[in-house]
Write a protein that binds this DNA or RNA. Structure first.
Lengths: 131, 131
DNA sequence: CGGCATCCTATGAGATACTG
DNA sequence: CAGTATCTCATAGGATGCCG
């Protein structure tokens, strides 16, 4: 298969969670690999200042069946998030990404740095966390 | 490792091309797997109406050393794009994504459909190519 | 044919501030 | 503590139209 015919929107590449799910989805999966985490823990781990972003990410992921939410009825509130089996099934993909990054990311970044790219904002340099 | 400490922006997940590179990067790689393609070919294959988007994607990818551009000095213009070794090295990752999609994507989509998600626009259903 | 130059718009990401 | 409610802002994505 590959690129013979026209690539329709049903193509896996178009639907894959890391693109569909927003910027933080992948990191949340990684953060939850060790086991359940609380909302605040996640927030700190991921370095998210705004709660809203995390809330949205988690809601989307719940909607997609990637994580489950457990509300330990307590006061003060205590809520934990945990990977579902489906969520954990993403691990091989993440590992593939990690391995690639280990071996090749430097090369890509070097290329990028060397290029004027005709333009200033080709893509935000990941090493400089602006915003 | 995994999620012990704070996850800094240098984390591979944050820099991985499929998130950094924009929506079409992955598909372009797939489209180029078989060999060099012309600009118009890519455009058709990917189903991109706007040339600008493809131009930008390709420029970014060149900048990152993922593809090379060959201008066959001809009239009318004839330009081909080709995967570099670095670009081709993404194949394992893509395959991992594909495999995951084959096995689990349906599950995710089913989950999503079943959920009200509190909101309308959780994420654009990949099966309905709007726009 | 390839690809700029423009312009437009939806929306993702984030900052605050407030509530149960 | 774990959210919700607003608001702002940048920008990715796309539609046209023109040029070499």
């Amino acid at each position: 298969m590959t690129a013979e015919a026209r690539m329709d929107p049903a193509c896996p590449m178009a639907a894959f969670p890391f693109h569909v799910g927003g910027k933080w989805t992948g990191m949340v999966v990684v953060a939850l690999l060790d086991g359940p985490r609380r909302f605040g823990e996640l927030r700190q781990t991921l370095g998210i200042r705004s709660a809203k972003v995390l809330t949205e990410t988690l809601r989307d992921m719940m909607c997609d069946g990637l994580v489950t939410r457990t509300d330990h009825q307590a006061n003060p509130p205590h809520v934990t998030y945990e990977l579902t089996d489906l969520g954990r099934s993403l691990l091989p993909v993440i590992d593939a990404m990690r391995e690639w990054s280990d071996q090749r990311l430097a090369e890509l970044l070097a290329h990028r740095q060397a290029h004027p790219a005709t333009e200033s904002g080709a893509a935000p340099t990941p090493t400089s966390p602006q915003r």
